[in-house]
């Protein structure tokens, strides 16, 4: 095993220890369980007219919950050590800083995306199984599968913005605020494009690309950071 891979794995494990000790690991259950079950119950109670509409609502709710978890975990993964100056200790350890942060972000961002993926599967399955189509129901505003893919792009974007903000501000709380603001802007733009009939796959693709750029930039800057 090369040094970089070992550094990556050591720090991925370290991030899991942090999540476990801070009890934040339980947050990962929210998008995977609370989102699908909660939205399905709401669908049934509100008599949502079609499985596709139920799926759209469930996906939006689950993505909203996943985004909160992602923002929190990402902001802490990048910003907490910098705010506490723990990096004065960890930067002096014989490891690649880039690999170290990549390992931690893989757990924070990757974990949030993974549990959102579980939530997506459950939302789609529960809605198609439990929600019946009412006669004369209007078509869903979005194709659920497209929406799910777009939401992955959104979450990736939020991860990128939050991680970059965490590095720039050296503060997890400010990173969190930056992520929330980014989410609000993206939601506004998406609504605008939807109303104007201009919402195409390019938008979430651009978001995903932006997110990957943000994450990569953070990792590269972390390696170069002047403590």
């Amino acid at each position: 095993m090369t040094g970089v891979i070992r550094d990556f794995l050591d720090n991925a494990r370290w991030e899991l220890v942090r999540l476990r000790r801070s009890q934040r690991i339980w947050l990962l259950l929210i998008p995977a369980i609370a989102g699908p079950i909660g939205s399905t119950l709401a669908d049934l109670y509100l008599r949502v007219p079609s499985p596709a509409t139920a799926q759209v609502l469930g996906l939006l709710i689950t993505a909203g919950l996943a985004s909160l978890v992602l923002l929190d975990l990402t902001a802490l993964a990048v910003g907490e050590d910098l705010a506490l100056r723990t990096h004065y200790f960890t930067f002096a350890l014989p490891q690649s800083r880039a690999a170290a942060l990549a390992g931690r972000l893989t757990i924070a961002v990757g974990g949030s995306l993974a549990v959102f993926g579980v939530g997506v599967i459950l939302v789609l399955a529960l809605a198609s199984e439990l929600v019946a189509s009412l006669p004369g129901a209007v078509p869903a505003i979005l194709v659920p599968a497209h929406l799910a893919a777009g939401l992955f792009g959104l979450l990736l974007f939020l991860g990128g913005v939050t991680s970059a903000a965490g590095f720039l501000t050296r503060s997890s709380s400010q990173a969190l605020v930056a992520g929330v603001l980014a989410g609000v802007v993206v939601a506004g733009l998406a609504s605008l494009f939807l109303l104007e009939g201009r919402l195409t796959p390019t938008f979430p693709e651009a978001l995903a690309a932006g997110g990957l750029i943000g994450l990569t930039w953070t990792v590269v800057q972390f390696q170069r950071a002047d403590g």
């Binding site: 009890q23 506490l84 100056r85 723990t86 004065y88 200790f89 002096a92 350890l93």
Partner: peptide
């Protein structure tokens, strides 16, 4: 840095660790 031990300034450690 393999055989280096360094404690610079007063680094904080997350309180839950």
């Amino acid at each position: 840095l393999r055989k280096l031990g360094a404690l610079v300034e007063t680094p904080g450690v997350p309180p839950y660790l």
